[in-house]
Design a protein around this nucleic acid. Structure first.
Lengths: 240, 240
DNA sequence: ATTTGACCAGTTAGATAGATACGGTCATGA
DNA sequence: TCATGACCGTATCTATCTAACTGGTCAAAT
């Protein structure tokens, strides 16, 4: 049983309000006053939880990404066929689409996080590509991905798919586009046929790999940010 | 043997100049004066060939696309393995990448055509998606593409790939990205495995389909624009 | 101790006007 | 007959100022 302090509950309510407003109007055009009003607290209260608007956005993004990861892992574990590159891709897409905020971030031209993401700098894309390359390399070593293509090339393809998914989401009206779940399933099937090694890959090794990889990503991030799983919402020690 | 009038040669020189400048500075930031200077003619001369800057850009785009199509068809015919969906995709990418102007249009955030493309209106993306859907449907009927996925879903995937290719081109610095040809070959291989029917598809039917399809596209466009293959560069009858 | 919201300084959005640069024309000359 | 480039009206940019807004603070209220 999970106990939530009054303080933590309030922090969550504020993040809920921020998530709605960011998703609808974007980070830049959402004011701190509006977040406070939507959450039913005074503006000063936000500053009792986070050091500023930026720290709040970071906390929100962290919370939602954690939720998506949890959802993703549950779907993967529940799937007896799970563990291949295709099923990993499929479940990650479905978990992402199921989260309104993260989905908005990834499909709304990134206005949702506006200035916040912009501060990561122009090097961010390079870093992300290098991370993708390293991930592919490890997936190849784990027997999840075919090894007759260079990891650079596969990472480039996967990056293209992410970017294309985002662009298509903003460009093609939802009215004429096929339902997201159908896209996710078709896309994952193509990824499986196109990137899996002969025989489809080792399912158990795949699940182990995903668990270990995500745990490592989370651990690194929390180490970087000085967060712990049992910490509260984060006293204003973060100076943006 | 092809005979070119003095007039046609000059039109080509002007289009060459425009191609260089558009690719480098974009449509909006390239002035008619600069095009004339780069081509070594007076500004008024441009208006002896086209009705204005926009008509010039359209003629340039048409010329370059025709060249890419010709190059694509030659590559396809020369490939004994050509005719599968994968090889069609591969040759179309390689032909596109080999053309500096078209490549710039597709990978430079579309600043290259700036205002010119913008006038096609916001409906353009919808129309393009519908065209992609219809094309996939015909490819399925021709035995080129697997039929166990709905054409809408496949068209969505292919649109994603196009958009992703463009985004990745602008986002990932060429210095750390794999060479375009490697990307094209890997991408085409994934498309072949992911979208071809059992057995890989009928090669001869594939070639026939491509020939017929492109001829039809060109014919429709020329009908729409009142162009003919044996026409000259287009007297200023085009009013943009 | 905890929460509030009026208040502050810094930034941004909007308006105006003047200057610049642009696409397009056409009288002139070759 | 063909090609030119100075010229024109308009559209776009620059500079400048003002008014409104925003993120953040803190004395006061609870």
């Amino acid at each position: 049983m999970v106990l939530l302090t009054h303080r933590q509950q309030r922090a969550d309510r504020i993040l809920d309000a921020a998530a709605r407003l960011f998703a609808r109007y974007g980070y830049d055009k959402t004011t701190v006053d509006e977040i406070a009003r939507e959450a039913g607290v005074a503006k000063g209260t936000l500053y009792l939880h986070w050091s500023g608007k930026e720290a709040l956005a970071e906390a929100l993004l962290y919370r939602e990404v954690r939720r998506v990861i949890e959802d993703f892992l549950q779907r993967l574990e529940a799937d007896p066929e799970g563990g291949t590159i295709g099923s990993i891709y499929r479940h990650s897409l479905l978990a992402t689409f199921a989260n309104p905020f993260v989905r908005a971030v990834l499909t709304s031209d990134n206005q949702v996080l506006g200035d916040y993401l912009r501060r990561l700098g122009p090097d961010y894309d390079q870093i992300r590509f290098e991370a993708a390359r390293a991930l592919v390399e490890r997936m190849q070593a784990a027997g999840l991905v075919r090894t007759d293509l260079r990891p650079e090339a596969i990472a480039y393809l996967l990056t293209m798919l992410s970017l294309g998914l985002a662009s298509a989401g903003t460009l093609i009206p939802a009215a004429i586009a096929p339902p997201p779940d159908e896209v996710a399933i078709a896309l994952a099937d193509v990824v499986q046929r196109g990137l899996a090694p002969e025989g489809g890959g080792d399912r158990e090794a795949g699940k182990r790999f995903v668990r270990a990889y995500l745990a490592e990503v989370i651990r690194r991030y929390e180490q970087l940010r000085g967060l712990r799983k049992d910490a509260d919402d984060g006293q204003p020690s973060d100076s943006g």
